[in-house]
Design a protein around this nucleic acid. Structure first.
Lengths: 199, 199, 199, 199
DNA sequence: TATTAAGCGAGACGGTACGTCTCGTCTTAGA
DNA sequence: TCTAAGACGAGACGTACCGTCTCGCTTAATA
């Protein structure tokens, strides 16, 4: 009935300050859980069990499932921008690198979870919206470099153009089309070349 | 101990066949619930209560939450294809019509729910993937008409081009950017005209 | 979507230990429910509702309906052994006291429920069997005192003789013959005096 | 969606009259179900499935689970009264014969189910009470023959004395003490000889 | 050096929802 | 008119999580 003393090797409080080992254990457990069971099998309860952490400890630092998911996603390593010297190839390589990353690491599952969570949690929704804007800006660098190289039309604004790329990436993820070799090249040709017949 | 007989005006069995009134009541209740409380407040339990239906009746016909959500979404009325005589305006009007539809009817919330559900339910995932392909084909009609009118480059394949449009629509929905007047026009200009500097 | 916090006056956790107030509320609710609706109207669901307790709280401490019923029965106050100085009167008074107790308090309904439950639940079956043995031993005290007083034949073993009394009590309960004044006296005469014609 | 035609070998209506084959199939299915799964696994639903009968057909002829259980019990073959020429042996043999019957055929399980059902169903309760009275009368025959043989005290009334025997039998059944060789002999000695020390 | 204050694990708590089972009623289609 | 079939509203089953609360311990910062 009385609480057992914890096993001697357990993490304990380190005083009136956050224990980084706990935060680390929780994030790792969440990541592992997501990659093993996906969003459907993800719960704070399981994370706590796996991390040997108390639920209130989790809620204290991440007030919602969404917050924890976002933190887990932020931990994933980011993708380097390719530099082939040619816009079209840059975009293709960038897209394929991200799709591969999503396919071969937990990152894809984690991000799908964030998107799902954002549909029912307003905080996550706002965070996702901000994140999207940020991705547009980052990705805009590819376009900006194309402008520098005078490959891209002068009236193109990098972030707006990048919006198409980000949307396309999410769409591939959410529809489960992460692995479709060749698809990217054809699709990117359309975006880069436009739809209009040239005079 | 004995189950109460239902009130005399309740829906009853109409024999060894599905009662369409129940199906209707369930779908309506689900739609109303989604539009009032969103995906987060959606549960089979609440749908059953609201529809005055038994849970087993729901599970009998829609084996998962995803199946019910998809059926609710299919009930939404579809959008007519605009025909302005000009590809760019067709696309802009089409996108804005859908965004408006999503913003002003429950359809947006419902579809966000379907997407969320698809991230944890494999069946819904497959259905969403199929649905996406279907939308690409439908939307491809706009491009095809542009080909007919010789507005569009000969080497463009309608469904592939349409994929960009569908992805863009989903992205606007999922990031909560349903109402951004003017945004669509600028973005579509990029897709239609392409990124490349003309020689 | 978010679970409502319980009303401020509700029972809450008192830490990582069982809250006796909850246990008490649950047992009381179960007892009240049984006495009002009988075994047929008894369900864990109703007990939880009535006790304002969560179902999992009940299942945590009483893993089956049978366990809860047995605990509720154990809470009933026990009957004092009469001491009239004469075996036959002791037995009659004992039997009538128990029948009255069963008739005028929830105890009778509760014990009938335990017996019923024991017919489909193995745990309850074993518990009932143990309980019966215990009752035989307890009731044997009446016989033992008769032996002490040299009223009872030397070769009688108290618990065996008491088995007849316990069986008789259960039979009266299960056949709904709790109130039949005079019946007990005649029946007990048979047990005490035996069937055999004396030489 | 439309109901399948039944398999060609199914029992069908034989017109505007009760089909005895259905009644038989239902009773057999109920008996088999009880003996295989016990009272806990017994349900009208399963009986109907097993008998390939419609639930309304069952409810039409047996208005409650209790009624069906009682009918199933009545179908069991009855036990012959032993005639050893000596009261005590008659009673021992009678008791052991019934316990053996209950132990080795479905009859024991069925009767336990009837008793359990009688604790929540008033109809079954009344039927069980009547049944008990009937058993007392039947069993009284043993005592009556003892009277005839002048083995039994003149003031003993057969049905009352038999009540002890019936109670004892039920008790052995309900506490799961069907198989305890030797127990019966010692216990019956007490009943027959009485508790009182002879002067 | 002693006290306080926060963090920590553990886990109980009131709840909601899950997906399944059975209840007893009802209607149909077919013989 | 009776049958098999099965849909129906109702509601209980036992389990998983939710987010909150309290406990008893541990430790760093403060007094």
């Amino acid at each position: 009935m009385m609480p057992e003393p914890p096993p001697p090797n357990a993490r304990r409080s380190i005083g009136a300050q956050r224990n980084p080992a706990s935060a680390e254990a929780i994030l790792s457990a969440a990541e592992a859980l997501l990659s093993e069971e996906g969003y459907g099998g993800f719960s704070i309860e399981k994370v706590a069990r796996r991390a040997r952490a108390g639920k209130p400890t989790i809620y204290k630092w991440w007030p919602s499932k969404a917050a924890l998911l976002l933190d887990v996603y932020q931990r994933q390593k980011s993708i380097e921008m390719p530099d082939t010297g040619r816009l079209e190839d840059d975009i293709i390589q960038f897209i394929d690198a991200i799709l591969t990353h999503w396919r071969e690491t937990p990152a894809g599952t984690i991000f799908r979870s964030v998107v799902a969570e954002a549909q029912s949690d307003e905080t996550a929704g706002a965070a996702l919206s901000d994140f999207a804007t940020e991705r547009e800006a980052d990705t805009g660098f590819l376009i900006w470099r194309g402008l520098e190289r005078r490959e891209v039309r002068d009236d193109i604004r990098p972030a707006e153009a990048a919006r198409w790329i980000v949307a396309y990436l999410w769409y591939r993820l959410l529809t489960g089309q992460l692995a479709a070799p060749g698809m990217t090249r054809a699709d990117v040709r359309i975006l880069v070349g436009g739809l209009e017949r040239r005079p």
